[in-house]
Amino acid sequence: MALHHYLCTPNHRNLEYTIIPMKLLVCISKAPDTTSRIAFTDEDTRFDEGGVQFIVNPYDEWYALVRAIELVETEGGSVTTITVGDATCDSIIRKALAIGANDAVRINAEPEDSMQVAKLIADYASDKDFDIILCGKETIDHNSAAVPAMIAESLDLPFVAFATSINADGGTYNLTCEASGGTNKVTVNGAFVLSAAKGMSEQRIPNMRGIMSARTKPLQVVEAYADATTKVEKFSLPPAKGDCKIVDADNPAELVRLLREEAKII
């Protein structure tokens, strides 16, 4: 059996182990559904949320959260989710609880940049002895891939980027992660932060029992503040693509000519 980590408490002559269950923190962010219309308001400084359906950021849900739940299912322990955002995040937090997280924390602050989000999460986690802090590899709106490494640095923890699998063996964790041109095996001892990429696990659809129990699971709201260090001054949409030039299927040589002479890329 893979005991997670344990305290030895001598009990008369027998050595008795008190198993400390695994404590996992999963960072969950709110993201616009991929089919959302992308538009901006306030003189193009803010994403226009009008009519937008919000989902749990797919990397956070499919990979980080589901794998965390699987780990505690086999090793014992609990999964807490944490989200930096306002009350509009509560529905996606309930979804995470319905999938199987035990409880949730929402830091009631408007997410402004990765540094601010990471500081808020790191501050919260600093005195709670989480064994692993799991993040998604990036948010699908800002595509920053910055928060996880910043949490790790703020807490002075090791960081495994783009993890594609993880297994626990006592307090030791064996992972694989994406590396340039392939994958690497990585081993870590003790607490660390990871960002989860494809391969960690499969999507889980919450069942009726999950959805019912999510309503009564604890969602703690914490007030906190941290400074942002960067700011989006302006969003813009790329110029619309010109019309697609259709080439006759019997004449691929014409396509080759266009790629060479017009597009100048081959």
């Binding site: 901006f40 595509n143 942002a228 700011k231 989006v232 302006k234 969003f235 813009s236």
Partner: peptide
């Protein structure tokens, strides 16, 4: 680029 390339952002640094 943001929103998986569907939009662009112009970012200032305050530090």
């Amino acid at each position: 680029n943001v929103f998986s390339g569907k939009a662009k952002a112009s970012v200032s640094v305050g530090t």
